[in-house]
Simulated scan of single mutants.
Amino acid sequence: MVPKASITFVCTECGGETLRWAGQCPHCQAWNTLQEFQARKPEPGRRARSEPRQSGVGGSSRPVPLTEITSDSAPRRQLAWGELNRVLGGGIVPGSLVLVGGEPGIGKSTLLMQAARQVAGGGGQVLYVSGEESNQQVHMRAARLGALAEDILLLAETDLDAICEAITAVRPGLAVIDSIQTVTDPGLSGTAGSVTQVRESAARLMRLAKEEAIPIFLVGHVTKEGAIAGPRVLEHIVDTVLFMEGDRRQELRLVRAMKNRFGSAEEIGVFAMGEHGLEEVPDPSAALLSNATTSSPGTAIVVVIEGTRPLLIEVQSLVNKKEGGYPPRRVANGFDLNRLHMLLAVLDRRGGVPMGEA
């Protein structure tokens, strides 16, 4: 018998549920954030007929004394990148579910492909599931990054049932799903990326990771506001949330831990994007001060704390004299207004071009 579905409305901001649609979420008071969600009711007796879980990270279904549980049986997997190990809290934890977010083109797929190469180089097997690119496209990127290895298995699939079956059959040391917004459960309504699909797909992958002790990395898209696309409950389901940021016109990339159940949530990893992919920056202070001009007026070197380590950064300031009572009103079309203000100030101060009234 097909399980029945109950319709609720889920807030994309806080994950709160309500039985009726409203313009404002009754939990967080956000406007226009409620979306329809169909939750399937389990079949009667399904729990009794289901097979007992294997003793993985979650262990068996019976209660176990806390003193009898040891973490030595599931050690962390160390990667070749110390910067990524730092952000993850010391390495990849078996059975963990990690969400990696960032703007399009920032390097999320590159980061995970190179991490897969390091796991394969250490004797582990990796299952890379691509829901956005074909096998040929992923092969081209892997060849450019030098990540062609027999222990990296590629699966171009968006069906959640097929993905879970592949993970269970292969039992890799690491599974990568690129991306969670393209995965669909055929038993649920809604298109890929909807609240229903993203929420239930992430919850099912979390159960699979815990039961089979397989770490799973998810790639997440971001909205125009810079938040990870999908319901906010997605960030609550996963164990770790890593956010990749940086200017695509520059080479430096920062991987910041926004949430981490296995380590500090204030650590950052510094990487540099080059022709052959990402490279870790073991000395971020030297990289940040490589082009510093401490002899110029208006510059200073300060020390900031990021996570557990101090970093040296350069702070620049520029002050211009303003003629008249009020600054001129400027409008930019197709160009960042703050960047325009900065360029005009540099031209006025350093170039000798009077732009105070422009």
Rank of each mutant, 00 (worst) to 15 (best):
L155E: 02
E225G: 13
V170D: 02
R249E: 08
I237H: 06
F243E: 05
Q197A: 12
G193W: 01
E251C: 07
G246H: 13
T196I: 13
V183S: 01
R204Y: 09
L174G: 04
V233H: 06
C164L: 14
I180Y: 01
F243R: 04
L188Q: 00
I167W: 11
E251N: 07
I180C: 02
V170W: 00
A175S: 13
L205F: 10
L174V: 04
A213P: 09
S194Q: 02
R171K: 14
L154G: 03
V222K: 11
M244T: 04
L208A: 11
V238D: 06
R248K: 14
D178S: 07
R171E: 08
R248C: 03
L208N: 13
L234V: 12
G187H: 15
M244F: 03
V233P: 06
I214L: 08
V176E: 05
L205N: 06
L242V: 05
Q197G: 13
D159C: 07
I228D: 03
L218P: 01
P186L: 11
G173S: 10
I237M: 13
L155V: 07
L188S: 00
A156Y: 02
L155T: 03
V198Q: 05
G187M: 14
L155S: 04
R248L: 04
A162P: 09
T168N: 10
G220I: 11
A175H: 08
A162Y: 08
S189V: 15
E212S: 13
R204A: 15
R207I: 00
I180S: 01
F243P: 00
L154F: 00
L205K: 09
Q197E: 03
S189C: 09
A156H: 00
T168H: 11
I214E: 08
V195I: 15
E165Y: 06
L188Y: 03
R204W: 08
G230F: 13
E212A: 07
P215M: 01
E235A: 12
L205T: 05
V222H: 03
A203N: 12
V238Q: 06
H221A: 12
P172G: 04
K210R: 15
H236L: 08
R171V: 05
V198A: 03
V170H: 04
E235S: 07
E251Y: 06
V183K: 00
S201M: 08
I177G: 01
A229L: 08
L188A: 04
E165C: 03
P215A: 00
E245Q: 12
V176M: 06
R204V: 05
S194L: 11
P231S: 11
V238G: 02
R204H: 09
R199T: 15
T158H: 04
T223I: 09
